[in-house]
Design a protein around this nucleic acid. Sequence first.
DNA 1: TCCGTTTATGGCAAAATAGCCATAGAGCAA
DNA 2: TTGCTCTATGGCTATTTTGCCATAAACGGA
Lengths: 107, 107
Amino acid sequence: MPIRSSQFYEARAKIARALAHPSRLLLMDALRDREMCVCDLTELVGSDQSTVSKHLAVLKEAGLVSVRKERSMSFYASRCQCLDGFFGCLDTVLKQHIEDQRAVLVG
Amino acid sequence: MPIRSSQFYEARAKIARALAHPSRLLLMDALRDREMCVCDLTELVGSDQSTVSKHLAVLKEAGLVSVRKERSMSFYASRCQCLDGFFGCLDTVLKQHIEDQRAVLVG
DNA sequence: TCCGTTTATGGCAAAATAGCCATAGAGCAA
DNA sequence: TTGCTCTATGGCTATTTTGCCATAAACGGA
């Protein structure tokens, strides 16, 4: 008696996987309120250009970013404003979790 | 000029990784409004008991669930009510994404 | 005590992910 | 054309993740 179909959870897992890398979270953060080209994003992330392109492809495939091509450049932009609210909600939970852990350590 | 520190994104990536599996999303859904023992969760997920235990350990390590031991059983409960809001927000984005893809296919 | 139940963990093999290099294609300028 | 810039992708290796089996520990009942 799964609560929902396996496709339901698979679709959401795909989104979560797309966000499950610090470089991709940095990309989502940078693209939150402006579009940027791959060249600038590459400098921002500090990895190889091909690596950044592949990270962007993962975000694109998940539907989290859009691309616009102009001249020889690709401009990426965020399609989703959900992350701040989500991680803000999680911050509250995490802070409590850390405090609980500290309490355990302190005894 | 990263927007935030690498630890910032690493911490969030850890949470996203914990959610990046359909079985773990099913577990979070099942535990949303009630606690359950590992035995019942194992039956729900349909994987080996050791597999479910390890999924639960991942969620616990991320601070997303709590455990309470009673008799010989472990009862897990969600520590976070952020998922519904987040995925609800994403649903809107995804529906639009799917529609865009269809529009491209149709031409 | 002995046994059955419940849970966690080590170990292993298969699968997925990550990151780099090399490279190809597109666009633009000289 | 030639060359430079920008981007995407194939290929490869290293790392991580996944899922099962086997097993151990904890607990309770007979």
